[in-house]
Design a protein around this nucleic acid. Structure first.
Lengths: 245, 245
DNA sequence: CCCGAAATATTACACATTGTTACCTAAATA
DNA sequence: TATTTAGGTAACAATGTGTAATATTTCGGG
């Protein structure tokens, strides 16, 4: 199993099947389980992306199970229960559930809430992922987020140093925004954890900008891309007003 | 503003204040707003970690606002509304809300659900962070996964070069395992995406090992930690059989 | 339009990092 | 033991990067 899968846990077979079928009908991969033991089994076996957990699980207690799962795992859990009093709901949230749905429920609403939780999880994941390796491109310039080089609009590879790459990354990630020296300096260090901070006081940034211009600008003396915003800092932008013949 | 803050948006001042006060009482930083315009303002001004958004916002429509916000932002949103019919709830989830709470609500339950969403967001974030920067330690040697330095068992900081750090990281991550030159070479490049592959043919690795030994070994000529496995490669290990006086 | 102060650019230099090469030593093997 | 082979290391070269000194540009006020 490697496709993200929802695990439906309920000791009532009918209920279990109903939920599973409904979710499958809407395009999800679904596995089912009836006991806590089986949950563990599924989790260690593969990629469970969300657990729909019944609170009253025969001998076992869904709340307890949820608490245990949370100790080791970060799998999102939606509790489902016939107990709908506020204090019962709250104990569900307290043990780390992501949502708490009262039975009987409207299956469409269940679906909506499942989607909401998944959306949240996936979003956070992809955002953080991008932070490190996404592709940046602007005005035809492409940085692959990995190698120390950029592709010019003509498709020519231009090798950069590590430091130059980081500078470019920060600027490309914020096109048309004038960045202050401090912002750039900070961002360059944050960009790649684990470095001695660059001293934002000295002229290091200016020198670096100069070097980068030397590599990516047609005419470094009169930069068309990496421009200076006097009194502010630098900006990566295309001047649309500029009349090109 | 730099502390994570909850933004409460409701055109009814009493309601707004009530929610804000309650959340503040429970340790949250809270800002309030009455219109969509103000939301934008708060978001661009600083770190809003969660928005509690009333669905019926005078002239404006919370659902629409939510949809718009989602287009650009990833801020978690909990919708609050007097409209509690299933289809109304569902339209809330559809536009990307993380939760939908019906008025009137039990403030404790609101709090629980706010916490549930924040927990989810923060968890995902910190997990992804760790993915890149976990801590390695072995036999008293600690590498924090970030800075280019290690702590010796005596707690002394030893500065390393980038390359040395990567080598150590690979070795620390596989203690007691003899690694071939190829494995080390590959791992060092994979470790940090975006590099020209190190040529595993030359003697670069040997030289690097020598340099690292010079920094971390008591007696570099007779290494006690970073040992050579002749015909294989290198290994980071403590020889327990060795009788130390 | 010119001057001077402030901001930015550039140049020269110092130093660290890192790979290569050549030569040396130690270990394995016949 | 002689020979062979793997690993160690010194010296060098190519880069990368920051600092400091110097040059240049920009912009507001005479």
């Amino acid at each position: 199993m490697s496709v993200p899968t929802i695990l439906v846990v309920d000791d009532d077979m009918e209920m279990r099947q109903m939920m599973a079928q409904y979710l499958r009908k809407h395009g999800f991969m679904v596995h089912t389980a009836a006991t806590g033991r089986e949950i563990q089994h599924h989790i260690s076996a593969g990629r469970i992306e969300l657990i729909l957990l019944d609170v009253m699980l025969g001998e076992e207690n869904g709340i307890e199970l949820c608490k245990e799962l949370r100790r080791e795992q970060d799998v999102p859990i939606i509790l489902v229960s016939a107990l709908s009093a506020d204090h019962q709901r709250m104990s569900g949230y307290e043990v780390g559930a992501d949502d708490y749905i009262a039975k009987p429920f409207n299956p469409d609403l269940l679906l909506a809430r499942v989607k909401a939780v998944l959306r949240r999880v996936r979003r956070s994941a992809s955002l953080n992922y991008r932070r490190n390796t996404s592709l940046f491109s602007f005005a035809g310039w492409v940085y692959d987020g990995k190698k120390d080089e950029v592709l010019s609009p003509d498709g020519i590879q231009i090798a950069l140093s590590q430091r130059e790459t980081r500078l470019l990354k920060v600027l490309l990630a914020n096109p048309h925004v004038p960045l202050t020296r401090d912002e750039i300096t900070t961002a360059m260090d944050v960009t790649q954890a684990g470095d001695i901070n660059m001293d934002s006081s000295g002229r290091a940034l200016d020198v670096l900008v100069g070097r980068l211009r030397g590599k990516i600008e047609e005419n470094p003396k009169n930069p068309a891309l990496l421009k200076t915003e006097r009194g502010v800092g630098y900006i990566f932008a295309v001047d649309v007003t500029q009349t090109e013949i």
